[in-house]
Amino acid sequence: MALDQSAQLSDDALLMLYANGDPGAASELTARLAPRLLPFCNRMLQDLAEAEDVVQESMLRLWKMAPDWVPGAAKPSTWLFRVASNLCTDRLRKRRGVGLEEIAEPADDRPGAEAQLIQAERLSALDAALQTLPERQRQAVVLRHIEGMSNPEIGEILEISVEAVESLTARGKRALAAALAGRKEELGL
């Protein structure tokens, strides 16, 4: 199928095309879904190589499941985020057994921190603060405020109610504000 044609199709339709042997559907789906999935996984894991592995594994599960996909039942992107979210959780749990010191270091005690931090340092501080949140809060905050998803969609991904999503994001934001408190000037906010 020509690229300009496949660009107009829904993810659902592309997945059906893939299951029916269309050679171009997988490339189009990858181009749409992988760039959305990678930042989420990277933010959760704080490790780009691991995040890439999770994205590849999630997409592999999508390809395997394609012949049994029921159109209209769920969005492929929602399904994919749910799989990726669970894979990230599994990896974080394994890491806990290894030791917290192996997780990326927060950049808050870097020598020479000045009032005008560059953007990378500010984002590094945000990521470090995100790492202090419980996993579910972190997932909800990242999906809502960085990936820009709706509460119902996050509810489907995390398999919880919309009210529970609202509660998680509200508590997450409060905890983030607390974690960053006192560093306002340092962060250039």
Binding site: Y18, A19, N20, G21, A26, S27, L29, T30, A31, A34, P35, L38, P39, N42, R43, L48, A51, E52, V55, Q56, M59, L60, W63, K64, A66, P67, Q119, A120, R122, L123, L126, D127, I146, E147, G148
Partner: peptide, 27 residues
């Protein structure tokens, strides 16, 4: 700010994903 600074999939990752897709695709 964080939204604008997200990593994009490398060519290698895309190639790996598309290769998986080709292997798993029903005939």
């Amino acid at each position: 700010e964080a939204r604008g600074e997200s990593p994009t999939p490398s060519d290698d990752l895309v190639a790996r994903i598309v290769q998986d897709a080709a292997q798993m695709q029903p005939k």
